[in-house]
Computed example of a mutant assay.
Amino acid sequence: MTNQVNTALLPMTGRRALTASDTSLLDLFHTKASWIWTREDVKLGDSPNYEQRAFRKVFTMRGPPSNATIMIAADDDFALYVDGILVHAMDGTHDWTTAVAYHVPLPVVQQEEKTSMTLGIRAMNKQGWAGLLVAVQINYPDAPTPDIFYTGGDQSWVGERLFEEHCSGNSRGLT
């Protein structure tokens, strides 16, 4: 489910400093990305208090990547995985009104030659409205333009109410 929400007022914090190349991704995050959540028998965004949901997006890369920039906001907290590797643990300190940026070297396991990247997010709703907002830019060393995807851009984001956290390769896991 998606809902277009004006995110222009969301401040951006970083686990790293934002670069000039991040400007277009940040603009897309604020103007095109939409909040998503799992489909349930409640209105958009509502979820039982203190329950978690898993979201997954598999992206096919057009060549060997160098890195990814991931911008994320979650109501209320999240854990972030790239190809099954924990990038950010759910720590209870996330403020849903603040977006966070991560810079992740790719591939995350250097011995692997990958043609796709799996982004996994475990989101927790503490109370009331729930949602996840993400924009990702994959950079390539020999390509002048990056690949970009975001929540709400298409229907390829998979949201699960029930999941097994580290199940590789099946529809009920994050990896």
Rank of each mutant, 00 (worst) to 15 (best):
A8C: 08
A8V: 13
A8D: 15
A8K: 13
A8W: 03
A8L: 11
L10P: 01
L10K: 02
L10E: 10
L10Y: 14
P11A: 04
P11W: 02
M12G: 00
T13P: 03
G14A: 08
G14T: 08
G14K: 06
R15L: 08
R15T: 11
R16Q: 14
R16T: 11
L18F: 03
L18Y: 04
L18R: 02
L18Q: 02
T19L: 00
T19G: 07
A20V: 14
A20I: 11
A20N: 14
A20R: 07
S21K: 03
D22H: 00
D22W: 00
D22I: 02
D22S: 05
D22C: 05
D22K: 03
T23F: 00
S24Y: 04
S24L: 08
S24M: 03
S24G: 08
L25Q: 10
L25A: 01
L25W: 02
L26S: 13
L26E: 14
D27H: 12
D27F: 07
D27E: 10
L28F: 00
F29Y: 10
T31W: 08
T31G: 09
T31Q: 15
T31N: 14
K32N: 14
K32Y: 12
K32I: 06
S34L: 11
W35D: 13
W35T: 10
I36W: 01
I36A: 05
I36M: 13
W37G: 05
